[in-house]
Amino acid sequence: MARFNTFYYKVFCFMFFISGYHLNSLSAQGNCLVFPENSGERKACELSYLAVEESQGSKESQALFDKAIQIGPNYAWAYYEKSVPFFKRGMFAEGVSLINKAIELEPQNYLFYRAYWYFYQRSYEFCIQDLEQLYSVHQPSYVTTPGGELEMRLLLAMAYAQSGNVSKGIDWILHLMDKYKDQPQLKGFYDHFCLGVLYYKNNQFDLAESELEKQLIVDDTFADTYHYLGLIKEKQAEKKIAEGYFKQAMARMNKEHQGHSINLFTEFNVNKEDVEKVLLNQLK
């Protein structure tokens, strides 16, 4: 019996390994050993690892990626990594040409990155197109922006909201929130904030307030949450409470109480001037 168990244990270990082999996440970031020795992909993978050790966008780094692409033209990660410094320097045509090739090879791994750039350059229709394809066809369980700040469904939701379909955006975030019931550890830093803002934009003020209150439990140092709570109270004609929230927002904009603000939300961002303006209006 013990021998039998040992045998099946080995079989299952092998199955697990092979199953992992089929996950494109492995080829996405490159465990070079999964490619056959002396294959173009193996060499391209090794060269790409050398390339990312050089300064991003440097002549040396680019030359290594070029060599990788030449030797292993079907190795997607090289195109993706080579595209990054082009995008960051405003060379969008070159960047998108590279990421398009990566997407052609492995759409499941690289659609998110093109969508990310479309979103932050306010090309919301193309962002929606990419992320709808990502989630409807490839159904990844959890994908974030390259910096890890936001789950990509939050970007999809905000893109819908910016395109005038706020309700659809809300649906996407609620769908994401459902996932957290089983995996609460995955909940991000700004998820309740995004949902609260979309409810606010949809004139669902009670729901918006509830989400923003939840956001305060996650993080009470984020200035923008107080600003939106102030806007809600203003809509509800609770001027004094609104003023209190705006003052809290301003304090955190001024970095009091470890406060901060961050520009991740395109047109939903709040800046110091926005808070100053509403505070001035309060005084009138």
Binding site: G57, S58, K59, Q62, N74, F86, M91, E94, K101, E104
Partner: peptide, 21 residues
């Protein structure tokens, strides 16, 4: 797992830059 070993299509222009970007 492995795609055919065909050359990268010419559909996408791969920019070659011989200096710091």
């Amino acid at each position: 797992c492995f795609k055919d070993s065909v050359a990268a299509g010419s559909k996408y222009k791969i920019p070659i830059v011989n200096h710091d970007l």
